[in-house]
Design a protein around this nucleic acid. Structure first.
Lengths: 257, 257
DNA sequence: GACTGCTGCG
DNA sequence: CGCAGCAGTC
């Protein structure tokens, strides 16, 4: 059972590689962020031809999240944790899991109005978990959190110190999610890892990927029952090496059975 | 000896097919129109790697003409027939031929200011020939004339009657070029041809190529000494079938020896 | 640097 | 429909 998260940075601009990628990685459940298209413009065929069911929560130009699953999809919730006109949160039950897919507000820069909105959004997400789930559920909260949880997740912690994606208030909000009853699956399995193989996002500018200038900001946060089934978490760097890639790598969570 | 004309509709947007196309068609002389780039942005490497010499007369965004030749290039003239800031005319001597490459003003619609400019431009081209060449020269005037010379060059003459590209004043200017001492090489060899295999341009809109809704507006006008050497003229429809093609097909003039 | 939408052009 | 360029986002 594979649950993959991928900030695809425009699902339509990635069609040249999506079909082959699906055929090769074959996730049971795929959580996409930054669709950058409305529901009616989502390229459903590439998924449906491969047997995927879909829950799409799109938006013109920005944001947009989707869950594709080889299993039936039920109990879809759109617009979590707040319904503010931005398509950033989508939950669904599929393959025996409660899957919560988020594209967290970027925040722009520390102190910016968007930064405060980011902190509030993360607080609302914690509240939503309190209201709509329990830590005993088979639940995976995954997506692009736009937070590198610790210095080990950053190529140059001094350079990034107190900057957006790395600031202490953001990290505190992230820890509050964990405190609810979740574990950062990749970090759990790789407690001492750092460096380029520990990153999931690299800026397009300045050939950041080739130079290893990345951050780990895409995560699977799992409840204890899911952690007990976790066999591995893999950062799919090959997808970042493709022609015209997303700036994010997919991350695969593999569970048994 | 092959002299090819091709309105490439952005030379940079056609790089995905240009290299293979050059390797396969191997024109001695290639006249390009609608480069849509400045001289410094022209992708010279794809030509130079294949042994071509270049004369480039570019312009930002619109227009732009170039001559690429496997033979040495001499006596380059840029900005013919008028130097009005638009890069539409380029002449060079190469492979024993005087090659005049033009991208004639489109004209927008009959009666428009641009239409009158088109007629004046064609008159100036005739004057330029008078001043700078003689009908006894080994001369090829080729390019995108934005004129279908006769009804046989139009998929639906009644639909196009008196519209820009087909209007009588434009056709009269075209005949004045022939009267100087030139022959429409393709028409000379195919006096009765019409229909989709006689067209060189198809509108992107409405899938015009697939539906055979085209016009013959790209021509080789040759002097008598060149006509005597003309073995064939071929409309390269295969290039129009490629992925992300130009809206124009290349046209090959093959001379002996 | 690579997306989006937008306008101008043919 | 598919180029160009531009402004806005990350």
């Amino acid at each position: 059972m594979r649950v993959t998260t991928w900030n695809i940075n425009s699902v339509r601009a990635r069609l040249h590689l999506l079909g082959d990628w699906l055929d090769d990685r074959r996730p049971d459940v795929l959580c996409l962020q930054e669709l950058k298209c409305r529901d009616e413009d989502f390229p459903a065929a590439v998924f449906e031809e491969r047997g995927y069911n879909l829950a799409v929560f799109g938006q013109k130009s920005y944001n947009g999240v989707a869950i594709a699953s080889l299993h039936p999809i039920d109990a879809v919730v759109r617009g979590l944790p707040v319904d503010d006109g931005e398509a950033r949160g989508l939950a669904a039950t599929t393959g025996g899991l409660r899957v919560v897919n988020v594209y967290v507000v970027n925040g722009r820069e520390v102190g910016h109005e968007q930064y405060h909105r980011k902190l509030a959004w993360l607080g609302a997400l914690r509240d939503w978990l309190d209201a709509d789930a329990t830590p005993g559920d088979d639940l995976v909260l995954c997506g692009d959190f736009n937070i590198a949880p610790a210095d080990a997740d950053v190529h140059d912690p001094e350079l990034w110190r107190d900057r957006v994606l790395c600031s202490e208030p953001e990290r505190a909000r992230f820890r509050e999610l964990l405190d609810w009853g979740l574990t950062d699956a990749w970090r759990h399995l790789h407690p001492d890892a750092s460096g380029r193989y520990a990153h999931t996002w690299w800026d397009y500018r300045g050939r950041g990927f080739q130079r290893g200038l990345g951050l780990r900001i895409d995560h699977h946060l799992v409840t204890a029952p899911v952690l007990a089934r976790t066999r591995g978490v893999t950062i799919d760097r090959e997808a970042r090496k493709a022609a015209r890639p997303s700036d994010h790598a997919p991350v695969h969570l593999d569970l048994d059975p």
